[in-house]
Design a protein around this nucleic acid. Structure first.
Lengths: 214, 214
DNA sequence: AAATATAGACCGACCGTCGGTCAATGGCTA
DNA sequence: TAGCCATTGACCGACGGTCGGTCTATATTT
């Protein structure tokens, strides 16, 4: 198939590599197709031969980033050092790795780019879809015997990733430095609380409350 | 002052009103300044006389929306019917009102608009900044006597609003209907868990764990 | 009271740039 | 040589934004 050949071609990967540098650095909206073309030394037609639209290029770039994150975190979880950690220790390991990596990718987190929210919100969405199951899988061992609690492990993971990323990442909203540090200090407690609540420490009153409603 | 006159003028409010209709309906990026101008029957120069850029118009529109939400929820909280509710009942009242209102504003939630994430992410940010304290204030009575728990009330509110909105609102990411309903079913439990953890039901082991780290 | 000056709301032709299109073409393989 | 890709770049309409200027209503001067 033609499309498949295109995706596996060198050009395709070259373009994605260039976009992976420019999109986060300059912002998605602020980066023009022309800039990419010039920096690659190719013609406009070539660009649109591989990517029918700028939106498609964005999606391919995000897919590339999220895929990389996925395998990285998966390998980290199955590494010999992390294998025998407790669920909450594993979770904190994953989260610290994630936020740490973000800081490395962005040289200047002072710089706010409102023309980048499109990329980041899409990226966060894909990230949640792909990696939330991974997060949820580490909750399971710590979870109590009640069926009810474990029914919402995935949603809990999604909830946590979404909340943390949106509130700590300056890419989606120009948070001030003090806002970010304030939240990062609160995060361990909030996660612990959420996890603790999940693991069945609660008395039955809570579960009754909820099951009654259904 | 000249600027102040402009903000209080009829024109200014007319333009915001028009943008409040078109931006959510067509999407921010997809709505051109020309469309707004034509629909208002004014000239381009007039538009840019009141708003120096499209981004500034967006911010004014979002401010308008969030302000309205703020007073609406504040009044709701102080209403005679809601005044003597328990914290978690109040919380669920606020959240249901919010999501219910969103559905009304958007006629088609099936329609996904990736060119609207810029507006929605900014709106969510402003919403959190303005309304999280309001949410946090209703947590306080249900909170235990420990100082530690109540120290993170604001962050807990921010965390909840961000997570819920991002995961349930199709404006920021094109979630499928099944994803949304799945999460909405999980929400009562997750909120209850988070609130319960806050209210001091926990044993001291959790608090010790966290205080040790500081 | 008439003439003149000032302010500011409003106009629309115009600009550079953007994302995107397409007919033409070079070069490789069968 | 025929056919197929990958590649080219001139070209397009629409976009956000600018700018010189008009018009009216109010203040100031005569």
């Amino acid at each position: 198939m033609t499309t498949e050949n295109r995706i596996n071609s060198t050009r395709y990967k070259e373009i994605i590599a260039a976009a992976r540098k420019l999109f986060p650095a300059k912002g998605y909206e602020a980066t023009s197709m022309n800039e990419l073309i010039v920096s690659l030394g190719i013609a406009k037609g070539t660009m649109y031969y591989y990517f029918p639209s700028k939106q498609c290029l964005l999606e391919a770039v995000v897919e590339d980033i999220v895929d990389e994150e996925f395998t990285r975190l998966k390998n980290l979880l199955h590494s010999s050092t992390a294998q025998h950690l407790s669920p909450d220790e594993k979770l904190r390991l994953l989260l610290s790795e994630y936020s740490g990596n973000q800081d490395n990718n962005r040289i200047l987190d002072i710089l706010n780019r409102p023309d980048n929210s499109r990329m980041y919100s899409y990226q966060l969405g894909r990230y949640i879809e792909k990696l939330a199951p991974l997060y949820a899988s580490i909750f399971a061992p710590g979870c109590g015997e009640g069926l009810f609690n474990s029914a919402y492990l995935l949603e809990c993971a999604e909830f946590m990733i979404a909340g943390i990323t949106f509130l700590v990442d300056p890419g989606l909203y120009p948070w001030s430095r003090s806002q970010i540090t304030r939240r990062m200090k609160a995060l361990p407690f909030l996660l612990e609380a959420q996890l603790g609540a999940l693991s069945g420490f609660f008395d039955e009153s809570l579960q009754n409350k909820n099951t009654n409603k259904e």
